[in-house]
């Protein structure tokens, strides 16, 4: 676990079967609020800022990871691919054939760079959650998914206006076709709310919440396992506690693998929805 979580877990460590010991304290949402380093703490001076926290460092790590990946895999491209190049091609073709083409069609190939970078960036940020010693998914801070969702929001509105024209696009997006006139006063606000407010919000919150929940789950397993690990409690209780904490460790490992799948799936879903929104904006309703 991350250092913070370890500290947190250590407070309750060995508490099981210790008479008068500390009770179990589950990890709270506080693990998602690392305090800024003292040299980068400007959060007091400016409103709505956090200072240079662990999230910023991990963002830097994830970004350099993606940049390194891109540099390393596309260094020498040749017609006959080697192993490095095959990875990049796998990613690009996956995004093209599974996300871009089904959602936008062949003319959506011009959005391929956006989707590929979105996918790689989100996946790298998610994966920070299971890398030992880092272990905090960057996307479990709403600021980052919100930034990306904002980018997609601006992109799909721009695409819609440019491909359909301003009035036509907003009319198509807000007024459902085929609805009787008397219901429109009811429908139009709902459509505005769902298309232009709830849509970007859920787009960001979906990614954030999944990572948040997954990380909290892993932290709970780790903290619980650490809390129950108490071999000094005597032969019988010690054995039981070690067995308990062993099963917690096993569950932790299994859920870590599960988290990896979720991380991939969420990066996929985020990119897929971005492509869906762009595709919907591009086509006339």
């Amino acid at each position: 676990m991350s250092a913070d979580t370890l500290n947190l877990a250590a407070e309750g460590g060995g508490g099981l079967f210790t008479p008068g010991g500390p009770g179990f304290e589950a990890p709270s949402v506080g693990i998602f609020f690392p305090s800024p380093w003292s040299w980068g703490d400007y959060s007091e001076a400016l409103p709505y800022t956090s200072g240079i926290t662990k999230y910023v460092i991990l963002l830097l790590v994830a970004t350099s990871l993606v940049v390194f990946f891109l540099w390393w895999t596309s260094r020498k491209l040749s017609v006959v691919p080697d192993r490095r190049q095959s990875i990049l091609e796998l990613v690009v073709l996956f995004v093209r054939d599974q996300i871009s083409r089904p959602m936008i069609g062949v003319k959506g190939d011009k959005y391929l760079p956006l989707l590929v970078s979105l996918f790689l960036f989100i996946f790298a940020m998610n994966v920070m959650g299971i890398i030992p010693f880092l272990q905090l998914p960057v996307t479990s801070n709403l600021s980052y998914p919100a930034g990306l969702a904002l980018v997609i929001y601006i992109t799909f509105i721009t695409v819609g206006i440019r491909s359909q024209g301003f009035t036509h696009y907003f009319k198509g997006a807000v007024v459902p076709s085929g609805a009787p006139g008397w219901i429109l006063p009811l429908l139009v606000p709902i459509e505005i709310l769902s298309n232009f407010i709830i849509r970007p919000a859920t787009h960001a919150i979906r990614l954030f919440a999944t990572m948040f929940a997954g990380h909290l789950l892993l932290a709970t397993f780790a903290a619980g396992g650490w809390y129950m690990f108490n071999p000094a409690a005597g032969p019988l209780y010690g054995t039981i506690s070690v067995l308990f904490s062993g099963s917690a460790l096993l569950a932790f490992i299994i859920f870590t693998a599960f988290e990896l799948v979720i991380m991939f799936l969420q990066a996929f879903v985020f990119t897929l929805l971005a492509a869906l929104y762009i595709g919907q904006a591009q086509e006339a309703h």
Partner: peptide, 10 residues
């Protein structure tokens, strides 16, 4: 949503 983190992310 912290503005600085959002900007860094962007």
């Amino acid at each position: 949503i912290h503005i600085d983190e959002l900007v860094f992310g962007l």
